[in-house]
Design a protein around this nucleic acid. Structure first.
Lengths: 87, 87, 87, 87
DNA sequence: TCAGATAAAATCGCGC
DNA sequence: GCGCGATTTTATCTGA
């Protein structure tokens, strides 16, 4: 056994795994920055690209929100949500 | 050629690469959450683990300096330093 | 003079003003909760109300975002934004 | 009667009151920012002030307990307690 | 260098 | 009581 106790070993393992995942995440974050840099070098305005990406991401959620309203109202008047079978 | 112009193709490539990277990042974020969940299930307090990870990430001397300034401020307005019992 | 130094007095004043403002903010937050509670008691679904309020708040910003895209593109091709005089 | 029904009138009233309260809250939030700005202009580190305010808000004994657990965790994975010099 | 915007993290409250 | 989603707060980043 390399650690004082199982508990300590587990704690260490947890902390190290988190740190590893966070490192990978940071690397990915850096990579995103690189793509933006390349975009800029190619003549694209990074600001516009950011906007584009954000909108592509939000579009579906806007639709989802509409659906949420609908579902909520249907529930409030005691109707089953669309696409559901009774049994 | 598959696209209207090189420029449009490049723009598409940029956006798609960014979205791919962001997806991977989100996955990693989820994984971190899983580790915290496991920690909690094993009996560790996730809140403290977060604190621990944060401290490990900080430059130790930076943290000391921060603490020193905090002590100064606290002293100047008549607060007792941290970690003191009232009685 | 009531304080050891001007600096300490100022620090104390700053901290106290922040705490006062935060208290007021918390009170307002509580008040919002009260209105939601009243709504619920009157038979409205708080969840729907929240959605309503959120959408009313986002609607204008969605329009603003559209405008931002337009402005960005116009700027990128060297055109002045709408509603601007040359001199 | 100014509204289609009492219910609709009430709903409108609810939404408007919520929006009013949220506006006031936003104003207060802005005011807090102003105080921090003043603090910074006077030479105080806003980051430390934030820390200070957070500590004052915490129950002192809760904070001690948290610190105790943290020390335990740190000891169990072989980290030195905080506030220690390397040499 | 600083204010404002953006995005990330942490906390909180609800529903299951 | 616990996970999950929403909110709020904090920190990073970009442009002026």
């Amino acid at each position: 056994m390399t650690s004082t106790s199982n508990s300590a070993g587990h704690l260490r393992s947890i902390v190290e795994r988190i740190e590893k995942l966070e490192q990978d995440r940071a690397q990915l974050h850096y990579d995103v920055g690189q793509v933006y840099a390349e975009a800029k070098a190619t003549g694209f305005d990074p600001k516009i690209i950011r906007l584009l990406v954000r909108i592509r991401k939000q579009d579906p959620s806007a639709r989802q929100e509409e659906q949420a309203i609908l579902d909520l109202y249907m529930a409030s008047i005691g109707m089953a949500p669309e696409g559901e079978e009774v049994a």
